[in-house]
Each structure stands twice: as structure tokens, then as C-alpha cells.
Simulated scan of single mutants.
Amino acid sequence: MALQQVVQQTVEGLGFELVEIEHSAGGVLRVTIDVPWEPAQTERFITVDDCEAVTRQLQFALEVEDADYRRLEVSSPGIDRLLRNETDLDRFCGEQVDITLKAPLGAAAQGQVAANRKKFRGLLARGDAGSWQISWSDAPAPKPGQRISKKRESAPVQVLGFVWDELREARLAPVVNFKGRGVKAPPQG
């Protein structure tokens, strides 16, 4: 059985989603796992115990299959996780993301954005009919403790619409809050 199949069957058999497999030249086998996403489900994160359980099971399965590797690393996708498909865009709608377009905007931005710009960071939202949009403001973030005048005009919010095929890469923006994870209100309905 192929290495990909062994890893995928083992990971999915334990109730996780296989995100990525990387087999380096030095014999390191990196497996990235996540919790399968369902729209109504509250967000659950991969823990060290989850990685340990998958590691133990994979070591056994890979030994049975006589797979060629020196070291096994199992981890979560991390705070800057790659968004691999439109389902991931649905999952992280409303979050800060970094996107890279395949081609620069060119004249389509009508002078609002540099014509050769391909990288953007902003809030991901659903557009119309299978499209997405990202909104951002180019205003500099205030420094910690800095007072902001109420008379100061805020920078305009810019919006870029795109479809999945126009993206080279999309990732969650690594936003770190050192004061702890906030509690999200349960959905009403």
C-alpha cells in the first residue's frame, strides 16, 4: 500500500483530517492533521494529546507496511495554516487572511491599489455567486497606548473581489493575542 494511503487511512480512522504529508530527503516524515470541519460545530483545536495518539498509531501502521522513514513528526496546521480549497474559505470566513494572487491587479484597481500588487491581508467574506472578497484599510495600526484623535479621518476601507482560480496561495493571517483566547458567543437561532 502506498505511504499516502496508509497515512490517510490511519489519520481518518482516528477521526481526524489529513491536511498534508511531507517526506523530506533526510527521512523526516511530516504529517499535518486537523479536526474535520462541520458548519454547525463549535471550533475545536488539535491538542498535543491528539498528535501523540496519531503518532503512536502511525508508527504501528508504518512499521506493518515497512515504510521508509527515519523520524515521524505529527502536528497541527498552525496559526498561519494554508487554505487549500473553497471549503477552507467557508470555514474561515470572517477571519483575517493573507492572499497572493496569480497575477497583479493591473488597471482593474482604477488607481486605488498599486497596479503590480499581488499580496493582500484583510477580512475574508463571501461575495456573490461563488466569489469571495477581502476587505482592508491601509491605515497604519495604532501603537500600544497611543491616543487616537476623534477628529482624525479614518482611512477608506478597500474591497477586492476574487474567485478561487485567481489565487496562488491563501493562508490564515497569524494574529496573536497574548491576553488569551476570547470566548465566542454561541450561535443564536
Rank of each mutant, 00 (worst) to 15 (best):
A40F: 14
D90F: 11
Q57I: 01
K119S: 11
D68K: 08
V64T: 13
E38I: 02
R44A: 14
R81F: 02
P77T: 09
P140H: 00
D90V: 02
K150V: 08
G180H: 11
A185I: 09
L123R: 10
D68E: 14
Q158I: 10
C93D: 00
F92I: 09
L101F: 07
G111V: 06
S75R: 04
E166I: 07
G78C: 13
L167H: 09
G106H: 06
R171Y: 00
A173E: 00
A67W: 05
R171V: 01
V31I: 01
W37A: 10
Q158V: 09
L3D: 05
V48G: 07
D49Q: 12
Q4N: 09
G145V: 00
G122N: 02
I21Y: 04
R71N: 14
P187C: 04
R171P: 00
D50I: 03
E65I: 00
E86R: 14
K119V: 12
A125W: 01
W37R: 09
G26E: 14
R56T: 03
E52Y: 06
A115S: 13
E38W: 11
P186K: 09
R117N: 07
K184H: 11
V54K: 00
L101N: 04
W132T: 05
D49W: 00
T47M: 04
T10K: 01
E43A: 14
D66A: 12
T42M: 10
P142F: 02
S149E: 05
G161E: 14
Q41Y: 09
P186R: 13
W132A: 02
Y69T: 01
R81Q: 06
D138V: 06
H23L: 14
A108M: 05
V159K: 04
V6I: 14
A40R: 07
Q4F: 08
I21D: 03
G26D: 15
S137G: 10
G78P: 11
W37H: 12
A2F: 12
V11Q: 03
A141S: 15
E65R: 05
A109V: 04
G127A: 05
F92A: 08
A139Q: 15
G13T: 02
A40Q: 15
D49F: 03
P142R: 00
E169K: 05
W164A: 12
V183H: 10
A107L: 11
E20N: 11
G122C: 06
R121C: 04
D50M: 05
T47C: 07
G122V: 00
N85W: 13
V159Q: 06
R126P: 06
Q158H: 13
E38D: 11
I46M: 08
G130L: 05
D98V: 11
A53F: 04
G78T: 14
E73R: 06
M1L: 12
